[in-house]
Amino acid sequence: MYAQFFGNYLLSRKVITSEQLILAMKQKSIDHMKLGTLAIHAGYMTANEVDQIVIQQTHQDKRFGELAVKEGYLTQSQVTALVKDQGPDFLLLGQVFVDQGIIDNERLQELIIDYQSENELDDYSISEETEENVQHLIENFLIATERPLSPFEVSFLQLLFNNLVRFIGDDFTPIYPYPCNEYPTNYCVSQQIHGEFNIKIYIDMSEETAISFASRYVGETFEEFDEYVQSSVDDFLNLHNGLFNVNISNERSVELLLDPPYTEDNPLLIFNDTETYLLPVVFPFGMINFILEITVPG
């Protein structure tokens, strides 16, 4: 998603020329992500450690992951996680420049850190691409609701997108939202917002998806569906809704109230008297379902 922006970033830093960027964008589409690049990005290995393993590979016919585990740089579960999660798109572009000898791994490591710290700040505002995605989502919601969305609903959807990008990752695709009368739950947490805008938000996912979701949210690798994984899902929902209340307070001087998150124990949710929409969001590690139960005034 951010490959184009990373390319512009490298150009502005005069790390590469425009010709090199065009060639790399072409090469990127046929290359695969290397484990060493992913390990640097994840912060598991330094550039020096990756270089050491690459040198070892010239002497031994062994895979990168196998050698990195043997040297104690990575655990087997980290290798599995890295292989499964191919990392953000911009990383592949960076790797192409390393392969072409334009930069080395150490320089790539510095650029990743700088780029991400600058990008994290940008995530507080809506990037052009996210804005475009939000517009699509709002248009799709208009089809589902068959009525204009209130400013609260638009703000809510914008922030949900931004928070997914900021806290989980930008590699997701929202599916068309649609009205929902009943929903069979997996691991499901809900939270009610009261006041001038009344909405109950549910977040639901399988246990396996929750493990990957929590790993990204917390920045640690979780192996099983434990209380920390469950708490991560609660925490994301609570953080999102808290920030939404702050935005509404700042932008509209409207104070909304928030109930504590609640873990749904009912295997089947039934919605009779409210407008309820299901918004599925697909990440590479699984599907997250958001259910928005809206009480429309009047």
Binding site: N241, G242, N245, V246, S249, L258
Partner: peptide
């Protein structure tokens, strides 16, 4: 320590 840092 809260996510709900509204003025109120």
């Amino acid at each position: 320590v809260s996510s709900v840092g509204t003025q109120s």
